[in-house]
Amino acid sequence: MSAAPRTIRFTLNGSAVEATFPPHLSLIELLREQFDLFGARESCGQGLCGCCTVLVDGNAVSSCLYLAAFADGAEILTVEHLARDGRLDPVQQAFIEAGAFQCGFCTPGFVLMTKQLLDDHPDPTDDQIGHYLSGNLCRCGTYPEIIAAVLDASHCLTVSL
């Protein structure tokens, strides 16, 4: 059985791109190996820790459990594209101001899940914050600061609307 290479076209961080790869490649492998995007990290490899979170057509996914071939025609956003014109995204800024990380390994995933949370619920309840972020793990244990950052970002985004 031949596993012929596959060529797909998709939008990556706002730019039209093309990639050719073997069909068994996962999306995170494609992003790291062919596009030098290292913000998403494969940590647990099982969709549990959230370190590999990217947005596919606006939906957060675990890129370690996502076939790269399924990105064909999609719009992919990684943490690298959040800052615009030299300004950090309000969620990123809130994480810095709240000190919502220690080693920073999990931070891109938390930031993107927070984006998804605030897209769906601009003024989230404690339950909604817990629900969206329960699939992300911070082994430094900065959860109180992360929740403070989420609330800061929510405040910042709703006030500036």
Binding site: G50, V56, N59, A60, V61, G135
Partner: peptide
Amino acid sequence: HSNVRVRNV
């Protein structure tokens, strides 16, 4: 069930 990311896929 699982988490938001898995249910998105």
